[in-house]
């Protein structure tokens, strides 16, 4: 994935200008930087959730993109299984991933009854089931303890290890799992 001369600004606030990167497959890139400097906006631009203003992001045609929002969006009045069925109908795979994360599939219980950590784990499972070529994770471990963080990163490495993975996070526990680190503030200020 290539980012070429990418610039973006909100109404009165330029976030970044003329950024150029190359992200390789089978690499986990950890993007770090202070809040409000445009890291999440960059992920949204890659995911196509925001329109490009100038520059371009070159991605192989037909590449599937998986995006995990920092608020762990789930359809609250649907059950876990119904939420996961949007990306995969393979029930065995769903159960296996949930089991690894120590999550049950409690029938028709709506997702609104899940705790923050559970929502985060279900969102990660959804991304794993989606099996995208480009994986964008925005604060994927914010609500997870050390043990769950280790499980999450192990699953991501095992099942999505050959993909291009971009993680935006302040979480120092992820340093060990990243193949490369990108200081966003440094890149933006160049």
């Amino acid at each position: 994935m290539n980012v070429q001369n990418l610039s973006f600004s909100y109404v009165e606030k330029p976030l970044f200008q003329n950024l150029n990167f190359e992200f390789k497959s089978a690499t986990i890139t950890l993007i770090q930087g202070p809040s409000g400097c445009g890291k999440s906006t960059f992920l949204k631009l890659v995911a196509g959730l925001l329109d490009l203003q100038s520059g371009q992001i070159v991605i192989s045609p037909n590449s599937k993109i998986g995006y995990l929002h920092q608020d762990c969006h789930l359809i609250d009045h649907w059950s876990i299984q119904e939420n996961l069925s949007l990306v995969s109908t393979d029930l065995v795979k769903q159960k296996n991933f949930l089991r690894e994360f120590d999550l049950q599939m409690p029938g028709a219980t709506p997702a609104s009854q899940l705790s923050g950590g559970e929502r985060q784990r279900v969102s990660i499972v959804r991304t794993l089931l989606q099996n995208p070529e480009i994986v964008l994770l925005d604060e994927p471990t914010a609500h997870l303890d050390d043990e769950q963080t280790a499980v999450a990163m192990k699953l991501i490495k095992t099942h999505l290890g050959t993909k291009t993975i971009l993680i935006v996070s302040h979480d120092k526990r992820l340093f060990d799992y990243a193949d490369q680190k990108l200081d966003w503030k440094l890149q933006v200020s160049r």
Partner: peptide, 14 residues
């Protein structure tokens, strides 16, 4: 309102 909640998720999964 419920549909908008669904669309937020659907957008994220492409």
């Amino acid at each position: 309102a419920r549909r908008n909640e669904i669309f937020i998720v659907l957008k994220e999964i492409g």
